[in-house]
Every structure is written in structure tokens, then in C-alpha cells.
């Protein structure tokens, strides 16, 4: 029996629009297990990112509840949420979102300082190690505007990992990258997962989705189906892609 890390129960999210409310998520029930690489897929406008940010507490919900490690985080205060983000969650965004006036290394260390999971010196050492691991050490002293998209995204993953998060959220992390950089980033994420890191990733790319061991398909604000796979192995990538593609086709993807 897998340990439930994050659980969403009857999650609703509506946006006001022209005096009425547009329902994006409609009573979504979802569980994310510890150690899993969970993927959320769906067509554009299906509510994938909305669900990701709702589950991560980045965005408020209009109904339902979310628990993380059995704590009801949907009713957390702003301060509790900040602590949760600093210590338990890591985020990788599509647009990298590195602080523009900090170097890549500083972007990583600042996140570590906020997490307060180690002494400043240990954080600095860990940040350098992570950047090395993410093959971004050469650009460590540069500003985000001075590095390539791939380097920036690898640094963003390092930043997300600096506090040893319980769960790593990734929103289309390869969406703004070319093929080579995308592959590199996905390999890094797979590597992290194989080392026990729980990941929840949104993507619309089947090639990225095959990295997960569990794929949730979202349509019209509801989870329509899910696919469970064994842990990703590079050698099985082709067959895995075929499996996923077939499953997606069955869902009218």
C-alpha cells in the first residue's frame, strides 16, 4: 500500500467572468503517492495547471479540501503556506522564473536560506553540489538573463531541490525548451525520482509524460482516467511511449 502524500478531495475552482463564474475544476478527487512521478495530462484549457497550483496551495480553491501528509493545507494561513513552500514543496515553472537580479547560484542559495533546513554554509555547499549535479555549475555566477533557457531551467530544478522537498511540482518544465534541453531536464527529473523524490508534473507532451509512473488525464475540469506504469527506464522509452500514446488515443487525445 503506497503512502498518500498529497490528497485533493472534491476540489473546485471557479473564476468570475462577466458576472458569472466559469468552473475550471469540478469536484476533482486526486491522490499523489510518496515516491511517485505523477503526471497530469490533458488538452489545453483542461485545467491541468490550475489543478497543479491548487494542489500546491499556490492558488486558492473555491471548494473541497487538500491535505498534505494528513494536514489540511487548504485552510493554512499565509504564514503556514509560506513555511510549507519553503520546507516541503519545490516548484519548477515553465518560464523558469528565476529572480532576475540574483545569479543562478544565489537563486538556489536564497531558496535554501528561506527553507532554513541547514546552516548557511551547508546551504552554499549543497547549492554548488546541486548545480554541479544539474550541470549548471559553469553558469552559477551568471544572471538568468546571461544564460541559456536550458541552463536556467536546470538551475530552477536545483533551486526547487535545495530544501529537500517532500514533493516537487513541475508545470510544463520543458515547455519553453528545445529538444536537447528538454531531454536533459527530463533526465534530471527522472534521476531525482529514481532517488526517491516525489514529483507531480503537468505536461501536454507524451514524450515527457512517459517519465511518470502514473498519468492522470484531465478533461473539462475532471479526472477522466489514469494510467499506471512501472518505473521509467531509458531502454524502455519507445515501448512506453507507444503505450501512453495508445492510452491517450483511447481518450480521444
Amino acid at each position: 500500500m503506497k503512502e498518500i502524500l498529497l490528497k485533493g478531495t472534491n476540489i473546485c475552482k471557479a473564476f468570475p467572468e462577466n458576472g458569472t463564474e466559469t468552473q475550471i475544476l469540478q469536484s476533482v478527487n486526486v491522490e499523489v503517492y510518496k515516491g511517485d512521478f505523477t503526471i497530469i495530462m490533458g488538452a489545453s484549457g483542461a485545467g491541468k495547471s490550475t489543478l497543479l497550483y491548487a494542489l500546491s496551495g499556490m492558488d486558492s480553491i473555491t471548494g473541497g479540501e487538500i491535505t498534505y501528509k494528513n494536514q489540511k493545507i487548504s485552510s493554512f494561513s499565509e504564514k503556514q503556506m509560506a513555511t510549507l513552500r519553503a520546507k516541503e514543496f519545490g516548484f519548477v515553472f515553465q518560464q523558469t522564473h528565476l529572480a532576475s537580479n540574483l545569479t543562478l547560484l544565489e537563486n538556489v542559495t536564497v531558496a535554501g536560506y528561506v527553507s532554513k533546513t541547514a546552516s548557511p554554509k551547508e546551504i552554499q555547499e549543497r547549492a554548488s553540489r546541486l548545480l554541479r549535479q544539474m550541470r549548471a555549475e559553469k553558469a552559477a555566477g551568471r544572471l538568468p538573463s546571461q544564460v541559456s533557457g536550458g541552463e536556467a531551467q536546470r538551475a530552477a530544478i536545483a533551486r526547487a531541490m535545495i530544501g529537500n522537498p517532500g514533493l516537487l511540482f513541475a508545470d510544463e518544465p520543458t515547455g519553453a525548451l528545445n529538444k536537447t534541453n528538454s531531454e536533459e531536464v527530463l533526465n534530471l527529473l527522472s534521476g531525482l525520482n529514481q532517488n526517491g523524490q516525489s514529483i507531480l508534473m503537468v505536461t501536454h507532451d507524451a514524450k515527457a509524460a512517459i517519465r511518470g509512473n502514473r498519468i492522470l488525464y484531465l478533461e473539462d475540469g475532471q479526472i477522466l482516467d489514469e494510467l499506471t506504469l512501472p518505473v521509467f527506464k531509458e531502454t524502455e522509452a519507445k515501448e512506453r511511449e507507444e503505450t501512453v500514446t495508445a492510452w491517450l488515443s483511447s481518450l480521444q487525445w
Binding site: 499565509e78 510549507l84 513552500r85 528565476l98 529572480a99
Partner: peptide, 9 residues
């Protein structure tokens, strides 16, 4: 927004 995402209050 980035700083908030990192856990700044």
C-alpha cells in the same frame, strides 16, 4: 511572486 513561491512571507 517568485519570492513568495520560494516561501517568503
Amino acid at each position: 511572486g517568485i519570492y513568495k513561491a520560494l516561501g517568503f512571507t
